[in-house]
Write a protein that binds this DNA or RNA. Structure first.
Lengths: 202, 202
DNA sequence: ACGGAGTCTGAACAGTGTCAAGATATGGTG
DNA sequence: CACCATATCTTGACACTGTTCAGACTCCGT
């Protein structure tokens, strides 16, 4: 990837892409700032100018991941039933782990991120809010005694756990389709379960 | 931690403890083999003799974590109801994340582990089998149409996700008691949900 | 008492992240 | 169009990392 001009053109984007790709193949432990610079055909010190340090670069990747996740959530059809919407959000979540494994690998690695980063703070919490809204809708109209905050975190944890287990090869899933099948049923279990919690008047 | 004798005595254990402590405070990214050696008062090359390399040391910590997890699972009262047993296992899982955060931080980081390690292979799968048995018991006697493998992985993912989110400070929980409260209800939701899945004859 | 086996050290090597200072190109202003 | 401030990238250096290998040290069984 040698370049003709002294200036790269869009180094920032090239570095983020290279980082995501490297994270997807080698994992966060195998990541190296110098290797990323090498793949972008640029000197080892160049990335620091755009992102400050490694943490900044990783944070940029994570932020891009949250942008995609939010977009995938927003693309879910509004006309679906609350049950279907919950399932669709779960599928969107783990699908991101399939289509953007490099991003997913660092989105919740707070030890690698700068959680005070402006762009990150502006993007990341939105994903949780979207899940929360879907759970609220799923509980609406039922006499369930489930704590909404608890139900939301439970759903979130289930999605997150599935994506994480899949990514770490710990779940020994045959293929991507099996993961989709798995998350669909897991979200149904969550939906049925949260609505079956005995109500306060019970 | 300077020592008088040339031989340390129980360096293997000291290194594992120091690693777990360092992982708990700095996280896997802040971990350094040389720092561990320093804390044990030993030369930088000493750990390699016992564990081969960093991967071996991390794997030993993860294996110890699985041993504790299995022990915690086995300590759950046999006389409890299937529902209560499921909740107790969930609590045991996240409790490990509280009491042994350093171990938990690497137990599922397959990019850091040597998954072919003998001791690891002999220990890690047992935890999944125990969860699987509890889920089987929870489904027994019901006409639920839930796929047992799916239900097991769903429960596992929920526990794992909760522990992970808690550990990464992403869940913004007030304290450990809130996490326990959370996992108890999450397991109840899972229990109720998996039994509420429409049966095959429905 | 002695020799082998197990433990640990010391030095070295390649590779890493980060920083300051300098080289190079770009775009706006006269 | 000429020019210079500014953004962009390079170079060289530093401290630190994991790993290897030869060697020094100490324990244990004979």
């Amino acid at each position: 990837m040698a370049r003709a001009t002294y200036h790269h053109g869009d180094l920032r984007r090239a570095l983020i892409s290279a980082t995501a790709q490297l994270l997807a193949t080698k994992g966060p432990s195998g990541f190296s700032l110098r290797e990323v610079a090498r793949q972008a055909g640029v000197s080892p010190a160049a990335p620091s100018h755009h992102f400050g340090n490694t943490q900044g670069l990783i944070t940029a990747v994570a932020t891009e991941g949250f942008e995609r996740l939010n977009a995938a959530f927003d693309a879910v059809d509004d006309d679906l039933s609350p049950h279907e919407r919950l399932v669709a959000h779960g599928v969107a979540y783990v699908d991101l782990g399939i289509s953007a494994p490099g991003h997913m690998a660092v989105m919740f690695r707070h030890d690698l991120l700068d959680t005070d980063d402006e762009a990150y703070v502006a993007t990341a919490p939105g994903a949780f809010r979207r899940i929360s809204a879907v759970v609220d809708a799923a509980l609406a109209g039922s006499d369930s005694g489930a704590d909404r905050a608890v139900a939301t975190r439970s759903v979130w944890a289930t999605c997150h756990g599935l994506a994480h287990l899949y990514q770490s090869k710990a779940a020994s899933l045959a293929d991507d389709a099996e993961l989709t099948y798995l998350v669909e049923h897991a979200m149904s279990i969550a939906y049925l379960g949260m609505r079956a919690v005995p109500g306060r008047q019970a």
